[in-house]
Simulated assay, not measured.
Amino acid sequence: MSIRHSLLALLQDKPRYGYQLRVEFEDRTGSAWPLNIGQVYTTLDRLERDGLVRNDGGDGEGHVVYSITEAGRTDVAGWFEAPVGRTNPPRNELAIKLALAVTLPGVDVASVIQAQRVASVRALQDYTKSRRDSSANHRSADTAWLLVLDSLIFQTEAEVRWLDLCEARMAQLANPAT
């Protein structure tokens, strides 16, 4: 996830201080990816150093307000225009866990798969309920959260299908005659 570009995108609306950016990001994404406030301020410092935001001074209440520069607008526009790259896939802890489990003696791979399936199905049910509840009370502000929920639902459905495949492969390895 590009925190840099997310903060720039939010600053296009209006100048904000760090905590406001954090709250706005979490509101728009349904808090699916909580931001550490320290990370927000570190990123703002880098954006200022790179000339993509400017420090507009304090707001009178002890907060430093930042606004986007023209270079920042150009940078975030390029981010929106470019597809998300697939050259370096994000680390998938579950894939790593199962890859290691099948290569280490004494690990009950079937139990690892089953425990994850239970957790994934539970998460899928929670996401689906949230989706249904959000759709019933649909406001235009909910659209961002609904998009995030749809993404989480599709990813979790794919994860459950992948776990089914892993289980079938383990069964095939255990019984190669079939």
Rank of each mutant, 00 (worst) to 15 (best):
M1A: 11
I3W: 11
I3C: 05
R4S: 00
S6F: 06
L7H: 01
L8S: 00
A9D: 10
L11K: 06
L11I: 04
Q12C: 05
K14G: 03
R16N: 03
R16C: 02
Y17E: 00
Y17I: 02
Y17Q: 02
G18M: 00
R22A: 05
F25T: 00
D27R: 13
D27V: 06
D27Y: 01
R28G: 02
T29F: 00
G30V: 01
A32N: 02
W33Q: 13
P34Y: 02
P34I: 09
P34L: 11
I37D: 08
G38F: 08
Q39Y: 14
Y41D: 13
Y41W: 08
Y41A: 03
T42W: 11
T42I: 05
D45F: 14
L47G: 00
E48I: 01
R49K: 15
D50G: 01
D50K: 08
D50S: 10
G51N: 10
G51L: 03
V53I: 06
D56L: 15
D56N: 12
D56S: 06
E61R: 15
G62S: 07
V64R: 14
V64L: 11
V64I: 14
S67H: 03
E70V: 07
A71W: 04
G72V: 14
R73G: 05
T74Y: 08
D75P: 02
G78M: 07
F80V: 10
P83F: 00
V84F: 12
R86V: 15
T87I: 09
N88S: 15
N92G: 05
L94H: 10
A95N: 02
K97I: 10
K97H: 13
K97D: 12
L98N: 01
A101P: 04
V102D: 09
P105G: 12
G106D: 03
V107W: 06
D108K: 08
V109D: 04
V112E: 15
I113K: 08
I113T: 03
I113S: 00
Q114E: 14
Q114A: 15
Q114W: 13
Q114H: 14
A115F: 06
Q116F: 01
Q116T: 13
A119D: 08
L124S: 02
Q125P: 01
Q125H: 09
Q125Y: 04
Y127I: 05
T128A: 04
T128I: 00
K129T: 15
D133R: 02
S134H: 07
S135N: 13
R139M: 11
R139V: 09
S140D: 11
S140L: 13
A141V: 10
T143H: 02
T143Y: 00
A144C: 07
A144K: 11
L146Y: 04
L146Q: 04
L147Q: 04
V148C: 05
S151R: 12
I153G: 04
Q155H: 09
Q155M: 07
T156E: 15
E157S: 09
A158D: 14
V160Q: 06
R161F: 12
L165D: 09
L165S: 07
C166T: 01
E167A: 15
A168L: 07
R169H: 10
M170Y: 11
A171D: 11
L173H: 11
L173N: 06
A174I: 01
A174K: 12
A174C: 07
A177F: 12
A177H: 07
